[in-house]
Simulated scan of single mutants.
Amino acid sequence: MVRPGLTGWSQVSGNTTLSNEEKLHLDLWYVAHRSTPFDLQILWETLGVAAFGERRREDRLAMAAQWLSAERATSFMEGSK
């Protein structure tokens, strides 16, 4: 559904400091919220990561986990109808 690229939301949100599960959560959040302005933000942040190094973004991890939890609850409720 989404082609791989040179950078991504999980790469600018911690990359090597993240577990595979955390990267998956961030990538699923990205797929649901992707847009051209968001892609431009990721490109800009990639330059920052290249210049200043990786930084684990706990705020983004929490946002993605909360969104995923809500999505699962919604899917469960829709499936039980």
Rank of each mutant, 00 (worst) to 15 (best):
residue 59 D to L: 11
residue 63 M to I: 13
residue 57 R to Q: 10
residue 12 V to P: 02
residue 44 W to D: 11
residue 16 T to M: 10
residue 52 F to R: 05
residue 34 R to A: 14
residue 14 G to S: 06
residue 32 A to M: 14
residue 45 E to L: 14
residue 17 T to I: 10
residue 9 W to V: 03
residue 37 P to G: 11
residue 66 Q to P: 02
residue 77 M to K: 08
residue 18 L to R: 01
residue 17 T to V: 14
residue 47 L to A: 06
residue 15 N to D: 07
residue 27 D to Q: 14
residue 55 R to M: 06
residue 7 T to V: 07
residue 41 Q to T: 08
residue 6 L to K: 13
residue 10 S to M: 04
residue 73 A to L: 15
residue 47 L to N: 04
residue 58 E to T: 10
residue 24 L to E: 00
residue 79 G to H: 01
residue 42 I to A: 09
residue 55 R to P: 01
residue 37 P to K: 14
residue 55 R to D: 01
residue 57 R to I: 06
residue 13 S to A: 12
residue 16 T to I: 12
residue 57 R to M: 09
residue 4 P to S: 08
residue 60 R to S: 00
residue 25 H to L: 15
residue 32 A to P: 06
residue 36 T to G: 06
residue 55 R to E: 02
residue 77 M to G: 09
residue 79 G to K: 01
residue 27 D to L: 04
residue 15 N to E: 02
residue 50 A to Q: 04
residue 17 T to M: 14
residue 54 E to Y: 05
residue 49 V to Y: 01
residue 33 H to A: 08
residue 23 K to Q: 03
residue 23 K to Y: 00
residue 20 N to M: 06
residue 41 Q to G: 05
residue 58 E to Q: 12
residue 39 D to T: 06
residue 50 A to V: 00
residue 80 S to F: 13
residue 47 L to K: 05
residue 40 L to S: 07
residue 80 S to L: 15
residue 6 L to Y: 10
residue 35 S to A: 10
residue 54 E to P: 03
residue 16 T to G: 12
residue 29 W to Q: 06
residue 53 G to I: 03
residue 17 T to Y: 05
residue 38 F to Q: 08
residue 12 V to L: 03
residue 52 F to G: 01
residue 17 T to A: 10
residue 62 A to K: 13
residue 46 T to K: 02
residue 50 A to W: 00
residue 6 L to T: 12
residue 32 A to E: 11
residue 19 S to P: 03
residue 50 A to D: 02
residue 1 M to E: 10
residue 51 A to D: 10
residue 22 E to P: 03
residue 57 R to S: 07
residue 56 R to K: 14
residue 18 L to Y: 00
residue 6 L to Q: 13
residue 63 M to K: 11
residue 66 Q to I: 11
residue 8 G to A: 05
residue 65 A to D: 00
residue 8 G to H: 05
residue 38 F to G: 05
residue 30 Y to K: 13
residue 40 L to I: 07
residue 59 D to V: 15
residue 29 W to L: 12
residue 53 G to F: 01
residue 23 K to V: 00
residue 60 R to I: 02
residue 27 D to T: 09
residue 45 E to V: 14
residue 70 A to E: 15
residue 75 S to V: 12
residue 25 H to I: 01
residue 41 Q to F: 13
residue 44 W to L: 09
residue 78 E to L: 15
residue 68 L to Q: 13
residue 66 Q to D: 13
residue 56 R to N: 01
residue 48 G to V: 03
residue 26 L to D: 00
residue 26 L to E: 01
residue 74 T to E: 11
residue 65 A to I: 06
residue 2 V to C: 07
residue 80 S to N: 07
residue 12 V to H: 01
